[in-house]
Simulated assay, not measured.
Amino acid sequence: MAIVPEEPVLIKPVGVVISDFKKCSRTFDYSKESIVCMREDLTNALIGIEYFSHLHVIYYHHRREEWLKLIEWEQAEPPITIPFAGEPACQGVYSTRSPSRPSAMGSCVVELVKREENRIYVKGLDALDGTPVLDIKIYIPHYDAFPLAETPLNWCKANDLITTSRHFHWNTINVGLTLGLRTGAKALQEIGICRGEAVVAEVAGGHFFAQGIEGATGCSVLQGNMVFEEKNTSPGQWKLKLIGRESDVEIRLNDQIYSEASEVLNIGEDVLFAYVQKKPRSM
């Protein structure tokens, strides 16, 4: 078994970031320029770097505590699992680009605009003003670019990327889809109808949750028999009201985060649902 060293590794910064990005935020404008100001004694180490279009910048999250306050984290140690945006699931920090890394290391591929002596002007560096730079490295497309690299579908969607993965990352992302399938199936059971027999479904929750309900009940926004209210919140505010010809049922979910889809499939209804109420329809 490999033994992970426990002694700290001391690294002397090679530079510092000068940027208009001065406060912690949940968003960042990657079109903005900033400067990597290198130590003067390393000026000659930069000779020839201006002939490259992009660089890797490795830095230290020296203001990580501010980010932890931004996300209202109150425990002593930074979180190693992060809630998935818009889904009732969590990811390990190493499957995110979150600052909540145990090493507090950050990295970014940036566009090199120009170099003036020991000052490197770059575009797209997501580091705060004053961030210590630990290293820079030339970006070579032949070795560093992988056009067919895959990312989970919803990760792309959450970050407004132009392309999406060919893979549907079931275990993590589709907790919401699985919740929708179970909620829709429970609603059909409660009012004693089959798929396609409901008059309308009123849904509040995430997109995958609505998609799961569509799969179970046959109700759809496209068909005009689903009313959908998007809620990018935890499941405590997600609900389904399924209306049949003789009765309807309203189901609300418990406020819970799940590790993967299989967990949703295996838990009891008392854990899954906070509220299930059937009513006869008024004629």
Rank of each mutant, 00 (worst) to 15 (best):
R166T: 03
R166L: 06
H167M: 09
F168A: 12
F168L: 12
H169L: 11
H169G: 14
W170Q: 12
W170L: 13
N171Y: 15
N171Q: 15
N171F: 15
T172Q: 14
I173N: 15
N174F: 15
N174W: 13
V175E: 08
V175K: 07
G176C: 10
G176E: 04
L177P: 02
L177T: 10
L177E: 07
L177W: 11
L177H: 14
L177G: 05
T178R: 11
T178C: 07
T178M: 14
T178G: 01
T178E: 14
L179Q: 00
L179N: 00
G180N: 06
L181Y: 09
L181T: 02
L181C: 05
L181K: 13
L181F: 04
L181V: 13
R182M: 10
R182T: 06
R182S: 06
T183N: 00
T183F: 01
T183D: 02
G184W: 07
G184R: 02
A185C: 04
A185D: 11
K186I: 07
K186S: 10
A187I: 06
A187E: 05
L188H: 08
L188N: 07
L188W: 04
L188R: 01
Q189H: 10
Q189F: 09
E190A: 11
E190T: 13
E190I: 08
E190D: 04
I191V: 05
I191K: 03
I191P: 04
I191F: 07
I191A: 10
G192P: 00
G192N: 04
I193D: 05
I193F: 06
I193P: 01
C194H: 06
C194T: 03
R195V: 03
R195D: 02
R195H: 09
G196F: 10
G196R: 03
E197L: 08
E197P: 03
V199H: 10
V199R: 15
V200K: 15
A201P: 00
E202Y: 13
E202W: 10
